[in-house]
Computed example of a mutant assay.
Amino acid sequence: MNPETMLQVHDVELCVQTAGNPADPAILLIHGAATSMIWWEDELCERLGAAGRFVIRYDQRDTGRSTNDPAGHPAYDMADLAQDAIGILDALRIDQAHVVGRSMSGGTALILAVDHPERVETVTFMATSPGDPGLPPPTPELMKAFEHDAPDPADHTAWVDHMVRVIRAFWGGSPFFDEGRVRALAELDASRTRDLRSTDNHFAIETPGPVGGGLGDVSMPALVVHGDLDPVFPLAHAFALRDALPAAELVVLEQTGHELPAERWGEFVDALVSHTDRKPA
């Protein structure tokens, strides 16, 4: 991984990190709600870089080292998050990127694909949903993990313990859950985040859709990647999302929940590299 860089994008400061050769096709990785870029793990990014891709990951607002708003008072919405992504591409002098939106950030990826198609070569929706009524809700086991409020971040140990418990629930019973690995990432996240209380701002923001249409208006090649054990968006969400897109491929990761285990990195990298080699019809 290259060193982290702080970029001034519009009126916010965003922490960005890259891997690979800048001359290679760019992949912009956008993580989900309340989660910093480190959950796109280093080795995963390096594997994509070794496969001939220039990988960009970044802390969205209110995560990691990027600008944070006061807890409970986010002064932005999902359209602003999409503009942040464009600002990063501008700062790195990248005309087009392969955009990957994970979980909540599937909405950001959709805004980019529909409203800014000139900047998006392909789009990937990972562990996300079209949001259609009637799709299965999160599992009871996942909801149980949120029955108790998070502890005061000043109690570092209690905060990390809480995060590990919550993230375990997001794995949806996957046999690949590695508590030591998750705890190390939670420790790192806690140590590098400006204000842990502000990470929950992502759950309070407005999530407007694209101005120029919806899923049916995505004009570039699309990929849907989903775990078969996802407790947040059960697998029916992935099929509905694929069917709502004009021409999308679906990759289902077996024994995988909402998170991406190391045991599935090879399959994910292969799928993403193949997808980003596709040309528009």
Rank of each mutant, 00 (worst) to 15 (best):
T5F: 00
P22A: 14
A26P: 03
T35K: 11
M37F: 13
I38Y: 12
D42A: 14
E43H: 14
G49W: 01
F54V: 08
F54P: 01
I56Y: 08
R57F: 02
Q60C: 14
R65E: 00
S66M: 00
S66K: 07
D69S: 12
G72C: 04
M78R: 08
A82D: 04
D84M: 10
I86L: 15
I88M: 12
L92I: 04
R93K: 15
I94T: 11
Q96L: 12
V99D: 11
G101S: 12
S103D: 13
G106H: 03
L110F: 01
L110V: 01
L110N: 06
I111L: 12
I111R: 09
I111G: 06
E121A: 15
V123A: 12
T124E: 04
T124W: 01
F125I: 00
A127D: 10
P136D: 07
L142I: 03
L142V: 01
F146N: 04
A150P: 08
D152Y: 09
D152F: 06
D155W: 06
T157Y: 06
D161G: 05
H162F: 14
M163C: 14
R165A: 12
R165K: 13
R165V: 04
A169T: 01
F170C: 07
G173D: 00
P175E: 07
D178G: 03
L185A: 13
A186E: 05
A186C: 15
A186F: 02
S191Q: 14
D195C: 08
E206A: 15
P208L: 13
G209H: 03
P210S: 10
G212P: 00
G214E: 00
L215V: 02
M220W: 04
V225C: 09
G227C: 02
G227E: 00
H237W: 04
A238G: 10
L245H: 04
P246R: 09
Q255S: 15
G257V: 02
G257N: 05
R264D: 05
W265L: 04
G266L: 03
G266N: 12
E267R: 11
V273S: 12
V273H: 11
S274N: 15
P280M: 07
